[in-house]
């Protein structure tokens, strides 16, 4: 996609996301009495955004390609439990635990990808199946192997430094990973043919295949990416917090989808950008965590999230229409 060739910022997919971000902050400042210095100084929402963002990036790419992956909700606890069981309970080297955690991600991603390419079943349904199955496998596995549903883990110093460190006492190192991954994805998606393939698939899979794009390979790769990212987030959480528990991750499903959509990605595929996903995640994190800094009663937070999502969707829609009318020949999606 030649997103960067377009000079006009307003027509870029992330324009809506950036405006949403500004609108949300303005709303909190005006109605919630937020002290901006306090808000920007706090690590909590950046940490929240980083954990969510690493999952949202590949999910967003999947959505650009016209697929969906909700099994991430089970992959996050799967990642943290597998490293905790292997390296914590059985006391094997931490590298083995990491390999198992990430390997499990590859495996589940492959299953999702193969099923999505070999059958005509929508990926929402396929990954719903793997979601429930993985939840069960993680729970049963942990209870059968360790007799417990939460397992402690003590990682060696070098692993903590790379994956589970608190910078400045409160910023999780995963923020650095998030930024690095975002940069990497920007490079791949917007500057290599691979990115064009993803967009083309979301626009029209048949013609993409006819144009010689290895659609199956791309789809499977994307599913593997999203499952591995999810188990990576789980793994980092286990290393940082020295423990893992079975439940958890379900809220990542909706949170990640909402972040991606706020970031301007079309659920029906073919439209979006990595920076949009990045800003969408930031926006969602501020909405979600920023409410702690306001005078607004915490009880209303879900309502605000819902309304914000709907507004963001409306706004992105207008921007997209603007973008499409401005260059009708280039965007068949």
């Amino acid at each position: 996609m030649d997103t960067f060739a377009i000079g006009n910022l307003m027509r870029r997919p992330e324009a809506g996301a950036i405006l949403s971000l500004i609108a949300v902050i303005a709303f909190y400042v005006i109605f919630g009495g937020v002290n901006l210095v306090n808000l920007f100084g706090a690590a909590s929402w950046v940490n929240f955004a980083a954990n969510l963002g690493i999952v949202a990036l590949p999910l967003g790419l999947l959505m650009i390609a016209g697929e969906l992956d909700i099994s991430i909700g089970a992959m996050i606890p799967a990642g943290s439990m597998s490293i905790a069981i292997v390296s914590g309970y059985y006391g094997m080297p931490i590298v083995v635990g990491m390999a198992v955690a990430l390997g499990l991600g590859v495996l589940v991603g492959l299953v999702n990808g193969l099923l999505a390419t070999r059958t005509t079943v929508p990926s929402l349904i396929i990954t719903l199946g793997t979601l429930v199955a993985m939840q069960g496998i993680v729970l049963a596995g942990s209870v059968l192997l360790t007799g417990n549903a939460s397992v402690p883990l003590s990682a060696p110093d070098w692993a903590k430094t790379i994956f589970g460190q608190l910078l400045g006492g409160s910023y999780q190192i995963i923020i650095v990973w998030w930024i690095a991954l975002t940069a990497l994805f920007v490079l791949i998606i917007h500057y290599t043919p691979w990115g064009n393939w993803v967009f083309a698939m979301g626009g029209d899979k048949e013609s993409a295949r006819n144009a010689g794009i290895p659609t199956n390979k791309v789809t499977i790769t994307l599913f593997v990416l999203s499952a591995v990212s999810a188990s990576f987030v789980g793994m980092c959480g286990a290393i940082l917090f020295n423990s893992a528990q079975v439940s958890g991750g379900m809220n990542y499903i909706f949170n990640a989808v909402v972040s991606v959509v706020v970031g301007g990605v079309l659920l029906t595929g073919g439209f979006g950008s990595v920076m949009g996903i990045f800003f969408g995640t930031l926006t969602f994190a501020i909405v979600n965590q920023g409410i702690y800094f306001t005078d607004i009663d915490r009880n209303w937070s879900s309502l605000i999230i819902g309304v914000m999502l709907l507004l963001a969707v409306l706004m992105n829609n207008s921007f997209r229409k603007l973008a499409m009318t401005a260059r009708p020949k280039k965007k068949p999606a």
Binding site: G248, G249, N251, S301
Partner: peptide, 8 residues
């Protein structure tokens, strides 16, 4: 917001 990831 929920107890999915309680300790963290």
């Amino acid at each position: 917001q929920n107890y999915d990831n309680l300790g963290v």
